[in-house]
Amino acid sequence: MLDKNGIARRIAKEIRDGYYVNLGIGIPTLVANYIPEGMNIVLQSENGLLGMGPFPYEGEEDPDLINAGKQTITTLPGSSIFDSAMSFGMIRSQKIDLTILGAMEVSEQGDIANWKIPGKMVKGMGGAMDLVASAKNIIVAMQHINKAGESKLLPKCTLPLTGVKCIRKIVTELAVLDVLDGGGFRLIERAPGVSVDFIKQSTSGKLFAEADVKEMDLN
């Protein structure tokens, strides 16, 4: 079973040289730590920056330079700054190659719910609905099962939706899965030490799994 850094490490392996990538808040942010050295990618922050650099050294924080999580960051040689309309313009027109975001639930149709829990204070969807509706390549980083052991990969989402039929790939603490065009999850890889049976048990949506599924290579 993977911890959140393990999930981030596995997702990083999906990134290719030359990609423009938008990382969501939480586990997706950690993916930046595992991008292979020598690979040239550009991180987009939807508040208006391409070429997001690492956190600043202490004392070098700039209140005018933050990411979409409102954290102080830096720019890099080649960075560019733009307004919010252009930022979502490049998202909508699919200039961003890969979007990595978190989810509370994903359905076997590729629907995603990640912004609202009825009865709890709603904070808002931020840019999530724009991203999932437009991005051509989305990877979801999420927990496969909740603390009660219940699956979050479902036949149908129970929470209010963020987007419909938009998710193609999911990385959880247990597995890497694809969402099939006709519906259903397909097990691609299992996390180290996790059995196919356990993944079957932990997935309430339709799951297609071969008896022999390879273990993730995290290196």
Binding site: F88, G127, A128, L161
Partner: peptide, 26 residues
């Protein structure tokens, strides 16, 4: 949605009464 918010401002500034966006469909 954040992109809708930004673009509804932009539309006003460009003199367009409305925009079409996929954000929030469904």
């Amino acid at each position: 949605p954040q992109g809708t918010l930004a673009t509804r401002c932009m539309a006003a500034g460009y003199g367009m009464p409305a925009i079409y966006t996929p954000a929030g469909v469904g």
